[in-house]
Design a binder for these strands. Sequence first.
DNA 1: TATGAATGAGATTTCATTCAT
DNA 2: CATGAATGAAATCTCATTCAT
Lengths: 210, 210, 210, 210
Amino acid sequence: MTATNPIKDAVTQARQRQILEAAVTVFAEKGYHRATIKDIARTAGVADGTIYNYFKNKQDVMLNIVQQMAEVDQLMENVEQAVQILTPAQLLGMVFQNRLRMLKKNLPLTRAIFPQIITDPELNQIFFETILQPNFDKGVQVFQAYADRHQLGDTDPEIVVHGLFSVIFGTIMLAMLGDTVILNRSEAFGEQMTAIFLHGLHLDQTERDQ
Amino acid sequence: MTATNPIKDAVTQARQRQILEAAVTVFAEKGYHRATIKDIARTAGVADGTIYNYFKNKQDVMLNIVQQMAEVDQLMENVEQAVQILTPAQLLGMVFQNRLRMLKKNLPLTRAIFPQIITDPELNQIFFETILQPNFDKGVQVFQAYADRHQLGDTDPEIVVHGLFSVIFGTIMLAMLGDTVILNRSEAFGEQMTAIFLHGLHLDQTERDQ
Amino acid sequence: MTATNPIKDAVTQARQRQILEAAVTVFAEKGYHRATIKDIARTAGVADGTIYNYFKNKQDVMLNIVQQMAEVDQLMENVEQAVQILTPAQLLGMVFQNRLRMLKKNLPLTRAIFPQIITDPELNQIFFETILQPNFDKGVQVFQAYADRHQLGDTDPEIVVHGLFSVIFGTIMLAMLGDTVILNRSEAFGEQMTAIFLHGLHLDQTERDQ
Amino acid sequence: MTATNPIKDAVTQARQRQILEAAVTVFAEKGYHRATIKDIARTAGVADGTIYNYFKNKQDVMLNIVQQMAEVDQLMENVEQAVQILTPAQLLGMVFQNRLRMLKKNLPLTRAIFPQIITDPELNQIFFETILQPNFDKGVQVFQAYADRHQLGDTDPEIVVHGLFSVIFGTIMLAMLGDTVILNRSEAFGEQMTAIFLHGLHLDQTERDQ
DNA sequence: TATGAATGAGATTTCATTCAT
DNA sequence: CATGAATGAAATCTCATTCAT
């Protein structure tokens, strides 16, 4: 009876994607509040009511977008092995560049999503638990791994990681606030921030020592 | 006729303040969208319509709150002389600690304001022009002053300043996103970020050199 | 400040009445569900939103109609003295005739209200507490008074009262169900039911005895 | 072609019953309006659309429930011979007790059905013609039979019957309105109402006379 | 016949803004 | 200027019903 019908499941997923893509488009264009269900429906080429066959309500559409982001992020974040291969310089550089590239591509959507995540407690919780916290945890792991190999002095891994993430989210924030400098000079920005943190954390010297 | 009547002006300003204070309270409590004009009016002890004698519309109330923030910020930011007196370490430390203290006090209001600034183009522009850009400019000045006295190597003032600000706004962002680590360990965070940046920018060594 | 302004209060009450009257008209015509807020607003000559300045929601409009019924009923039900003056025959006769007359006048509204009272728990409770229970209580008092003066045998006041009320509400029910016999022959019905109950309760004989 | 295929008919009837039973369950639980076709379909274990192969629409489902009630009632109401066997006291007592028992069992369903019968003209008509009127007719027959054998004075059979039915429907109504007295003391209620009516109609005395 | 996804009309409700007093 | 009742546009969401598979 309730045996998973693969064909139907595929259709359902396709329809979900179709609606979510439309939602992403519309949210990016108008922001969460000015985007209406009608807009999304029209963009997706379905009737208003159809959306409610796939999502509980408008908030739930946004929530699914956020969760999707989390999944995409997950895939990219099996960086755990990277620690073994990459030097801190390479890793930091990669992370910064990576984020800056993402940001450039998705600024309008980012502008629509973050205000909502900040404003809506449920969204906030989902975002925190599925994206933020796991990344913090990985960050601490990575940093700890470096700390074990080099001498990082008395810097506290947790604080350093939150400091690094504050640079990343600060970049996002500044971009959302209309600051174009970082985006226009993203390569230089990435390189110099990498350099500052490496030297600031004595990771360049110790590197040389090894 | 429309000659500026100082008494009326004072009354008008007082009433404006009264409404803005109420708005700040209500926005902080409910966020921009869930806060109604009725809420603000009741909190301010005036009638709904009265608000429209002092502000064009709801958005304009928020806009005035942002502009007020700019003024408050201005006062505090005659740090220009500070460069003469304070070492980079002192200055950086002060700025970080200062911002973290502000953030702790005003998190709910911050949560209400930033989503709106990000979402609303007009608000965004005002914020950028009256707060962000001036602060960038000052930052570059300050950093330039240090650069003239010490050797900062090949670091680009503009990028470093945007980097520093990204830490500040990233902290705000993380706090709004529900990350409590930074707030709970704000002193350690401030100290370590100061240390990282000082060393990262070779400002500690050069200091000693002088 | 919040001192009751009699003029405003009067206007408010008038507007409330205006809306309630419109609601009564529309509910009577279409029933609760098919009556829309728009219908009521148009009939009352106000905008849709205005209704929400006076009532929390559609259900609340109905609730106020029921409560108004309770008040009207109250006024009429200072029958307590009646016991002193009227014989049981006169009292029973009056009650039956009275109810039948009311019913004839208000059948369409009755048809709209009772289904809702039965269906909606909140409405049900209000109706029960403000109308039904008080009437039961009065009924028992009255019946007790008669019992004290005459010999009623072993009949239980509570049961007799609920029995009498079941005749009244049964009449309402039959009328709502489309039975026109009772309404068409209401006088004969009232008289005969009075006679049956009087004799059935031995109230006619004891009367003669006195 | 459209010749009645007995097998198909049986299957069809079974499916109908299955859906109607589900509908009864759901209506009893949620009431007519809050019960959705989806609810009924799920409860019946069929698809939404299937319901429309057996019933014209949602209203028609309810209509069939009412008609089914009529059939059930019919079976029970071959009381015609009963008149020959039972004394008026026994008959009245049986009817009252019977109805009270039914009521106790089916209060939730009753609560769902009657509001709809009252509200919906088509349902109303069906109910009246298939249930109410036939019962009135039978009642008059029965009462006439007793009248022929005893002296009932000047009481009009039609009025007395409607009076008796008003007690029955009044009991239903009071129960739906939340009055629990009758249900809690149903036996005493039945007995006393029987006694009142018997004596009120001089049926007890005449009985003894015979 | 069975399915159940798609439909879209329609209803409730909110709330920024206006304006007569 | 202050008031606050009235406005009505606009948005979300529900759900009976249809129809292609």
